[in-house]
Computed example of a mutant assay.
Amino acid sequence: MNTIAGTWLLRMKTPIGTMEATYTFEETDGVLRGSASGFGETTPLTDLEAEGNRFSWRQRITRPMRLNLDYSVVVDGDSLSGESRAGRLPRTSVTGERISA
């Protein structure tokens, strides 16, 4: 099982303030999948890759604005940290904590 499997509360520090969303990751037959819920929408994660305790993925959101996001995080037990990027905007800090396994 991957170290990221479970449900996470992520906080992204953006130019318009800190945003929170719930991310769920699951592994079935060796395939890692994920989704994110926040701001009234649930979106699938794409291009999800794992290398040890490093994870990356992409996500398209429409709220609070339409953006394509790229994430890169490192998991350490029940916490994670890393960054996200929305197109040409500056990278933003991401932190998270596992809320269920």
Results as ranks from 00 to 15, higher is better:
83 E>R: 15
63 R>D: 11
69 L>A: 05
18 T>E: 13
49 E>L: 11
45 L>E: 05
44 P>N: 08
35 S>C: 07
50 A>T: 13
5 A>G: 04
71 Y>R: 00
78 D>F: 10
56 S>K: 13
26 E>Q: 14
70 D>W: 10
71 Y>C: 01
72 S>A: 15
90 P>M: 12
77 G>M: 05
20 E>M: 05
48 L>C: 03
88 R>Q: 01
31 V>C: 02
83 E>D: 14
100 S>K: 00
37 S>K: 13
71 Y>H: 13
13 K>D: 12
3 T>N: 06
24 T>Q: 13
90 P>D: 10
75 V>F: 04
72 S>C: 12
35 S>P: 05
35 S>L: 07
50 A>L: 11
6 G>K: 00
4 I>G: 00
56 S>H: 12
43 T>N: 11
4 I>T: 00
39 F>E: 04
43 T>V: 15
11 R>E: 12
23 Y>V: 10
84 S>I: 02
66 R>Y: 06
39 F>P: 04
64 P>I: 12
77 G>V: 02
37 S>G: 14
90 P>H: 07
78 D>A: 11
60 R>P: 01
48 L>V: 09
99 I>W: 03
87 G>D: 08
34 G>I: 01
85 R>Q: 15
25 F>K: 03
30 G>D: 09
74 V>F: 12
62 T>F: 09
27 E>L: 02
65 M>I: 04
39 F>R: 01
87 G>N: 03
3 T>P: 02
86 A>T: 01
22 T>L: 08
60 R>F: 03
35 S>V: 05
31 V>R: 05
8 W>P: 00
37 S>A: 15
56 S>V: 10
50 A>G: 14
70 D>S: 07
99 I>S: 01
58 R>D: 09
11 R>K: 13
11 R>S: 12
18 T>L: 03
92 T>S: 02
69 L>E: 03
37 S>H: 12
80 L>F: 14
63 R>N: 15
21 A>H: 11
48 L>K: 00
19 M>C: 09
43 T>A: 08
29 D>L: 08
82 G>T: 08
12 M>C: 10
71 Y>A: 00
72 S>T: 15
91 R>D: 03
96 G>A: 02
19 M>L: 15
84 S>G: 01
77 G>R: 03
59 Q>H: 01
4 I>W: 00
36 A>V: 14
2 N>L: 04
2 N>H: 12
42 T>K: 12
40 G>Y: 08
80 L>D: 14
6 G>P: 00
19 M>W: 13
60 R>M: 03
83 E>Q: 14
88 R>P: 05
30 G>V: 09
20 E>L: 03
69 L>W: 04
98 R>Q: 04
18 T>Y: 04
81 S>M: 07
33 R>L: 11
74 V>L: 15
42 T>C: 08
44 P>E: 10
45 L>A: 06
46 T>Y: 06
84 S>P: 00
78 D>V: 08
22 T>V: 13
68 N>G: 09
101 A>L: 10
84 S>K: 01
28 T>L: 12
59 Q>R: 01
55 F>N: 03
42 T>L: 07
88 R>T: 09
66 R>T: 12
8 W>K: 00
57 W>D: 00
29 D>Q: 15
93 S>H: 11
9 L>M: 15
22 T>E: 11
66 R>F: 09
72 S>F: 14
16 I>M: 05
93 S>N: 11
10 L>A: 04
30 G>H: 04
19 M>I: 12
47 D>C: 05
52 G>V: 03
32 L>S: 02
65 M>T: 08
